[in-house]
Nucleic acid binder design. Structure first.
Lengths: 137, 137
DNA sequence: TGTTTTTACCTTGACTGTCAAGATATTTGA
DNA sequence: TCAAATATCTTGACAGTCAAGGTAAAAACA
């Protein structure tokens, strides 16, 4: 297998996913940064600011502003931490959960679309390959 | 194959690539937007502003500012279009080519890393699967 | 040909995302 | 107790982005 050709194809795949994601997010009236935040809180459940900032790869200063805006949009809320009065737990509101579920469904549909024409075995092979790749880097 | 599990894995793969890319780009002193611009000009060769803006998915207003900055960094230049005096061709400078090649090599190395432990057949299967997926969406 | 429409690019104003640096409040550890 | 560490917030400075409006040139057309 020609590594250049493979590299090119992986990049194209990445770009295509990226474009798809941007389109879906924009339609929902969010920015990609805001969507990413909702995705993480949706998957992780209630999470501290600091931990969330680390997962997003931004500083806490950046996150403060970002959470302010998402709170204004009523997609998530700050809940005072029970045992640490410096800290908050961030959690999704009802509305936030809706947005999260909606986005999740979009992804499920995309995956189904992608797998059109793949046999069970081919799907399993692809899944296994991606898993293995992720262990490699 | 469970579509939810597969979807989750594809998203993780995407996120991992995204994080990798951000890291590599940041190390080179560019923003992701600037890098993306260089990638496209590198692959396409001399290209008009309008076409470049379309490929990047931004407005020409955004691109004007962006190209201004990349020209200041001496990574690319505006060359007046021969037959259309409203237009410019954007092309990489020597320095821009270097950056482009460097980034390209990073990707080649990443791909090699990813494929560690894959047989020729497995690599070809993975390549074929990704190609097929891209036709599906 | 002369005029209108379209096209390509630039400018500006407003907003988001981002970081670095510094402030405040609280917790931890010596 | 009190200094050090931690969690969050604030602010100032930029980059990226779009929309809207401006200029110049090309294209269409009457």
């Amino acid at each position: 297998m020609d590594v250049k050709e493979l590299s090119k194809t992986i990049i194209e795949f990445y770009e295509k996913l990226s474009t798809w994601e941007e389109g879906v997010v924009k339609d929902s009236g969010l920015t990609t940064a805001q969507n990413h935040t909702i995705e993480i809180v949706g998957h992780e459940g209630a999470i501290k600011m600091k931990q969330l900032a680390d997962k997003l790869g931004v500083t806490t200063g950046t996150l403060t502003v970002s959470i302010d805006r998402l709170e204004e949009k009523e997609l998530l809320r700050r809940v005072p931490h029970k045992s640490d009065r410096r800290s908050y737990l961030i959690e999704l509101t009802e509305k936030g959960q809706e947005v999260f579920k909606m986005h999740h469904n979009h992804h499920i549909n995309l995956t189904r679309e992608m797998m059109a024409g793949f046999s069970e075995q081919e799907q399993a092979n692809f899944y296994g390959a991606v898993k293995k790749i992720m262990e490699n880097f």
